[in-house]
Amino acid sequence: MRRDSVIYLLPTEITQDDVGNEKVVFGAPRKRLAERKSVRQSEFYQAATTDFKPEIVFTIWVHEYKGEAFLWFKNQTYHIIRTFEKNFRELELVCEVRMDGNSYIGDF
């Protein structure tokens, strides 16, 4: 597998503000090398029946993934909407852009 992109897996914690609204707090990012791919046409059209909008796919080693729901790539936070274990070594992370304004901002 060719590793052509640097991504940052973002562990999260759900907290509440003073009023009780839930807020996602990002933990320390974990830098990983990944292979970037386009979303397959079939997956794009299947997602059209839901609220998901898959935009990009990253492939990483299975042992590198710890269940993160978000990743950061090129100044954009992505929500991992689906994972797919291609084989015993590789895992695909199907992602959509996070649009709720709660983006990761950190030092890399």
Rank of each mutant, 00 (worst) to 15 (best):
L9C: 04
F88S: 14
Y104P: 00
V94T: 15
T83K: 14
Y45D: 01
I105L: 13
L71W: 00
Y45I: 14
V19G: 02
K37P: 07
F44D: 02
S5A: 15
F44Q: 10
G101D: 08
F73V: 03
F58M: 11
E35L: 08
A28W: 05
F84D: 06
Y8E: 00
F26N: 07
T83C: 15
A48I: 02
G101H: 11
P29K: 05
Y78D: 01
R3H: 10
V62I: 13
V6P: 01
P29H: 05
E64A: 10
S103M: 15
R36N: 04
I60F: 13
L71D: 03
K23V: 13
A69V: 01
G106P: 08
F84E: 09
I60S: 09
N75K: 15
E92H: 02
N21Y: 12
L9T: 05
M1Q: 05
L71Q: 00
P54F: 08
L91C: 05
V94L: 14
E90D: 13
S5D: 04
S38K: 14
M1I: 10
L93K: 06
F88R: 12
D17R: 08
G67P: 04
F44Y: 12
S42F: 09
L71P: 05
D4M: 12
I56K: 04
L93V: 03
W61A: 07
A69H: 10
F88M: 14
M99Y: 08
I81F: 05
F73I: 02
K74M: 07
A69K: 11
D107S: 15
W72I: 02
V62G: 11
F88D: 15
A28Q: 07
S5F: 00
F88K: 14
T83Y: 12
G101I: 09
V25S: 13
F70S: 00
F108K: 01
D17P: 10
P54V: 07
K66R: 15
Q76Y: 03
C95E: 11
D107E: 09
A47W: 03
G101W: 10
R40T: 07
H63I: 09
I14C: 08
N102P: 05
T77Y: 06
S5N: 03
V6T: 11
A28I: 14
A34D: 01
P29L: 04
F58N: 02
A69D: 15
C95P: 13
E22K: 12
G106V: 03
H63C: 10
A28P: 01
N87K: 13
Q41P: 01
V19R: 14
N75T: 15
N102V: 02
D107R: 13
S38E: 12
R30M: 01
D100E: 06
G101N: 04
T59D: 07
Y8S: 00
G20E: 08
G101F: 10
D100H: 08
L9Y: 06
G106H: 00
L33N: 02
V24G: 06
P29Y: 03
F58T: 04
L91Q: 14
V97D: 06
F108D: 10
T77L: 11
Q41M: 12
K23D: 12
K31L: 03
F58I: 06
E96F: 11
E90V: 08
I56P: 03
T49G: 03
E35A: 03
W72G: 00
I105S: 15
T49D: 02
Y78H: 11
F52A: 06
A69L: 11
E96T: 07
E22R: 06
C95W: 02
F44C: 01
I60Q: 14
V62L: 04
N102W: 00
F52R: 14
M99R: 14
V6S: 09
